[in-house]
Nucleic acid binder design. Structure first.
Lengths: 220, 220
DNA sequence: GTCTATAGATTGATAGAC
DNA sequence: GTCTATCAATCTATAGAC
């Protein structure tokens, strides 16, 4: 990479506090690599060497961008927190309950298939006792879940859903959808090559949606 | 501990290849401690020091019983593998489908509440790519799941269950029940102190059973 | 069987040349 | 910004006294 040429093209009057183009690129490469490593082995089980190798740079160079291992970890986590809340946030109190939950479950399954590393990153963090995101869990996440549980509770009390415990319904949706990311190795060991083949995602969605939605559909 | 007295009482003509009483006791203490540590941080994230401290013995003494870290890990895993298969194995093809699945889900929820560390141990191992139990997953576990999926498929074709994909139903049951062990920290952050209180387990079981069983009950 | 001491390897992080 | 070299801490595992 020719650094001088790269920056000279894009940056006029570069502010010292603004990240340069090469900084932004390298930070992005590092965070991608860090996600791959942390999502498999967790924070304690991962090494800076592993991340540096996967990012294709030397360890000291990586530590030039993020001074300490926990800084990389914090950056990776923060990048994924918002994406984690988005699907549940979009659950619309004014929509049709079954259709809203169908959309939510579908969205979570898509996320699980497209960004399984993000799911595994959180799984590892929570298994380890959530030392880094304990605050997030008990504030932002808790508030969001309480709000959406109230919405589901409202739907139930209006008779638009079968009488279900909203919190446990949310947990079941999380568990089931994230299972396909977190336990991917196990799913593959049992189902074999069909995992990842064209129709598998649709088949999974159909099966999961059928059971859960039938389970909460209001009954006459 | 007075070793001589202990063994003299219980062992007559002790065979050199048989573990002595103190050996059995210490191995048990070590495995309990190792389960606690490995289930939180996984294999790579755990240290022999941590296990030794929790077991209340020195590191060299611990390594007298299990020569290497991976030997301890293998022993802990093997101890829990059978208990892991047992509930699914007991799914009876000749029983009533809904009642059999109710029993299975209840059993898994009990296990999740009573031995959450075992669940977290597997979760960590599978997240890490199942380096130690990959063989178990693709042989014993796969065979068992295929057999029980066939049973569920039979129930479906007889019209005794709604048309569900047996494998995905099993995955959903695993995911949902194990969620309460694996993501305990998150569940506690959201639900607060009610987790662990007297009625919580029953409330959870009621909610989970209601959704899943209603979701697969045959419809006229 | 249990301990202290320590070897040998890995790891997080820094120094300093370019 | 990137590299080689290296320090200091941690970690697995062993040696050897008791």
């Amino acid at each position: 990479m020719d650094v001088k040429t790269e920056t000279a093209v894009d940056s006029l009057a570069e502010d010292e506090r603004q990240p340069t183009r090469i900084q932004a690129i390298n930070r992005g490469i590092i965070l991608d690599a860090a996600l791959d490593v942390f999502s498999v082995h967790g924070f304690k089980g991962s090494t800076v060497d592993q991340i540096a190798e996967r990012a294709g740079m030397s360890k000291p160079n990586l530590l030039y961008y993020y001074r300490r291992k926990r800084d990389i970890y914090a950056a990776v986590l923060e990048l994924t927190l918002d994406a984690w809340l988005a699907p549940l946030e979009s659950l619309d109190p004014d929509g049709d309950p079954i259709e809203e939950l169908r959309r939510y479950i579908s969205k979570k399954l898509e996320l699980s298939a497209e960004r399984p590393e993000a799911s595994r990153l959180f799984a590892n963090e929570i298994l380890a006792g959530a030392p880094a995101i304990g605050g997030f869990l008990s504030t932002r996440l808790k508030r969001l879940v309480q709000a959406k549980a109230a919405v589901i509770g409202q739907w139930v009390s209006e008779g638009r859903l079968a009488p279900v415990d909203p919190h446990h319904l949310i947990f079941m949706i999380w568990a089931t959808t994230q299972h396909y990311a977190d336990f991917d190795v196990q799913v593959r060991a049992i189902l074999g090559e069909q995992v990842g083949k064209p129709g598998f995602r649709e088949q999974t969605a159909q099966a999961v949606l059928s059971i859960i939605l039938n389970g909460i559909r209001p009954r006459p």
